[in-house]
Design a protein around this nucleic acid. Structure first.
Length: 350
DNA sequence: TCCGTTACGGTTGAT
DNA sequence: TAATCAACCGTAACG
């Protein structure tokens, strides 16, 4: 199988179509922005399209997360066993009931809420496929255990269930803008608050996340961080496959990014966008970015990021533009980022 | 020149 | 097991 990894955009940067940018680059975009670098400069510097920079920054501003959303998967099912059971009951008590009436009753009875009530067509399908034939107990009741509670929120079903408590930054947690949070936790997969992501727990104890949060590690998240815990550059997951394949992924052309996204960053095991090795490993030791790298170490993780890999490029031009630049983002976020990372962002804008 | 928005072609993962 | 679907992605182009 031919291995082709990445395309080159107009700026000369390498990207993998359909896949998120590496977290390190996303992080860098946010950090540069917080240092007051203009998006257009960030775009040029990192060789990422400005639309992408804009999107990432917008997402960050909105959610506090630098991470991409959860890719793939399906919406949680709304036709839970409990819902089916209720539909059956409605139908049995009133064989002439219409699907839309059932839908209304599901809402009225609190079996569902407006976010997870099945569509009329779904109800019709249920009536046809699961109930039409009868009055015998459905497969659900007999074969499945612990049916969800009435009015169950999505995240009870959705594998990425994510307690609100995990949103220390007050992020939206996936609630669509403008959609009121009506008591239910409609948490879409978003482990993406900066504190969670960059941090704090996931960094050190994926097991804790998995067990306590019911949040299975996903490649979309800081898989490399979690899994590898920045322990080794190549032996991620004990598989050296990364070392085998990775060198083809995201090959940055010779440029300032060439070392920033080294081959090993994209091991098959952790997919694109996730850095498997020590944070510092995504910067070539010899790379000029890694200049005076003050180590950016994450507290208690033992993880060390080289400030240089994140910040040395700052020197590129912002010093000269301090005057006419938009004011940096609120300090609070900057501070948050710092504290989250355990990073000390060099404020040396000189 | 900058930047927000969006069409597009792509990947991913649950069903 | 393969197909389908709906989520997401980043780029490129437009205004």
């Amino acid at each position: 199988m031919e291995q082709t990894y990445g395309e080159v955009n107009q700026l000369g940067g390498v990207f993998v179509n359909g896949r998120p940018l590496p977290n390190a680059i996303r992080l860098r975009i946010v950090e540069l922005a917080q240092l007051g670098i203009r998006p257009c400069d960030i775009s040029r510097q990192l060789r990422v399209s400005h639309g992408c920079v804009s999107k990432i920054l917008a997402r960050y501003n909105e959610t506090g997360s630098i991470l991409p959303g959860a890719i793939g998967g399906s919406k949680p099912r709304v036709t839970t066993p409990n819902v089916v059971k209720h539909i059956r009951e409605y139908k049995q008590s009133d064989p002439g009931i219409f699907a839309w009436e059932i839908r209304d009753r599901l809402l009225a009875d609190g079996v569902c809420d407006k976010y997870n009530v099945p569509s009329v067509s779904s109800i019709s399908r249920i009536l046809r496929n699961k109930i039409g034939t009868l009055s015998q107990p459905s497969q659900y009741e007999t074969s499945k255990q612990a049916p969800p509670q009435p009015g169950i929120p999505y995240n009870h079903i959705y594998p990425y269930s994510y307690p609100n408590a995990m949103s220390p930054t007050g992020t939206k947690m996936g609630n669509p803008p403008g959609v009121p949070v009506t008591g239910i936790s409609r948490a879409w997969p978003s482990a993406h608050t900066v504190s969670n992501i960059l941090g704090i727990r996931a960094f050190m104890d994926p097991a804790a996340i998995a067990s306590a949060e019911g949040y299975p590690p996903k490649m979309e998240d800081w898989g490399g961080v979690n899994r590898g815990t920045f322990s080794t550059a190549h032996g991620v997951n004990g598989i050296d496959k990364s070392a085998v394949d990775a060198d083809i992924k995201y090959p940055q052309p010779s440029s300032t990014l060439s070392s920033y996204v080294p081959p090993c960053a994209y091991s098959p095991s952790n997919q694109y966008g996730v850095y498997s090795g020590p944070a510092g490993s995504y910067v070539s030791p010899a790379h000029h970015w890694q200049t005076q790298s003050t180590a950016l170490s994450h507290p208690s993780s033992g993880m060390t990021m080289h400030a240089g890999d994140i910040h040395s490029s700052m020197a590129f031009k912002h010093a000269a533009r301090d005057g006419d630049r938009k004011p940096p983002s609120p300090l609070s976020k900057h501070e948050a980022l710092n504290s989250i990372h355990g990073l000390s962002l060099p404020t040396s804008s000189s």
